[in-house]
Design a protein around this nucleic acid. Structure first.
Length: 262
DNA sequence: CCGGATGTTCACCT
DNA sequence: GAGGTGAACATCCG
């Protein structure tokens, strides 16, 4: 599920943890934690207070502090099937993997807090991960607030446009659905060479990415785009009625309107 | 039964 | 170095 919009919903739900103290960490799945040993993670977060919860791209960041100083932060990635429970409640409803999807066997990570509650990550396919002190340099500028200058810098590449927009190090937060929806709204083909976009296309695309993110955010998620129904039904362009094209671009299934996207 | 899926990472090519 | 491909992860859905 999680593209930027879903992780933003997770952030809102997790914001209530601010002010609580970390009691402990549950790591039922050894492979879920990356780059640091479980004991090191436990030692560095236990007893800390939750200062706040941020989001950058698809990464959820729990900032910890202490009586003394600023503390470490915890980075949560949800992959394709990760969901977040806050104090035992789903941060988002209506996701895939159904109502039975909170199965205990799929709990990959837990953060217990005082005076009560905590976080749990449920991830059937184990595509997500948890890191200590995630490096901000791994992520490009956030798609929700992407400026033309930021996009333009990211587009300095000979790769297909879609590959760049999916690259979290170039632009952070967009997934397969948001990219296709944004390109369709901006009327630009996904297989264009990124570097070849002219200045007016760059302006239009940056503006369209921001408005697509906010529009689908209001509607309720990455799967609420105008392209979603024709995508599922192999249908036609909602604007002009031409049959949508479908192909693999940058390794992902891609839909676009061959009549309008140039 | 088979292919595909809102994602990332890595090994291996060209 | 740049870029591409395919596999792996584990489960559900059509």
């Amino acid at each position: 599920m999680p593209e930027l919009l879903e992780v933003e919903a997770y952030r809102r739900a997790a914001a209530r943890l601010a002010g609580r103290t970390v009691l402990g960490v549950d790591l039922p799945d050894g492979r879920y934690l990356r780059g640091v040993e479980p004991e090191v993670l436990r030692a560095s977060v236990t007893g800390r207070s939750v200062v706040g919860v941020r989001r950058h791209g698809k990464l959820l960041i729990v900032d910890l502090g202490g009586p003394d100083a600023r503390g470490p932060s915890l980075g949560l990635h949800f992959g394709m099937t990760g969901r977040l429970l806050v104090d035992g409640d789903a941060a988002i409803d209506g996701l895939r993997y159904g109502p039975a999807g909170n199965r205990a066997a799929w709990v990959r990570f837990g953060l217990r807090t005082a005076p009560a509650g905590g976080l749990e990550v449920i991830d059937p396919r184990r595509l997500g991960s948890v890191r200590l002190d995630p490096d901000p340099a791994d992520l490009g500028p956030d798609a929700a607030t992407l400026s033309t200058a930021q996009l333009s810098a990211a587009l300095d590449s000979g790769r297909p446009l879609k590959a760049v927009l999916l690259d979290q190090g170039a632009v952070a937060g967009l997934g397969n659905l948001l990219v296709d929806e944004s390109l369709w709204r901006a009327r630009i083909r996904p297989d264009r060479v990124a570097r070849a976009l002219d200045p007016s296309e760059r302006r239009r695309l940056a503006r369209t990415i921001r408005s697509t993110v906010s529009d689908l955010g209001r509607r309720g998620g990455s799967d609420t785009g105008d392209l979603q129904e024709p995508r599922d039904a192999r249908g036609t362009c909602p604007r002009c009625g031409a049959p949508l094209s479908r192909a693999t671009v940058a390794g992902r299934t891609t839909f676009w309107c061959p009549a309008e996207q140039v």
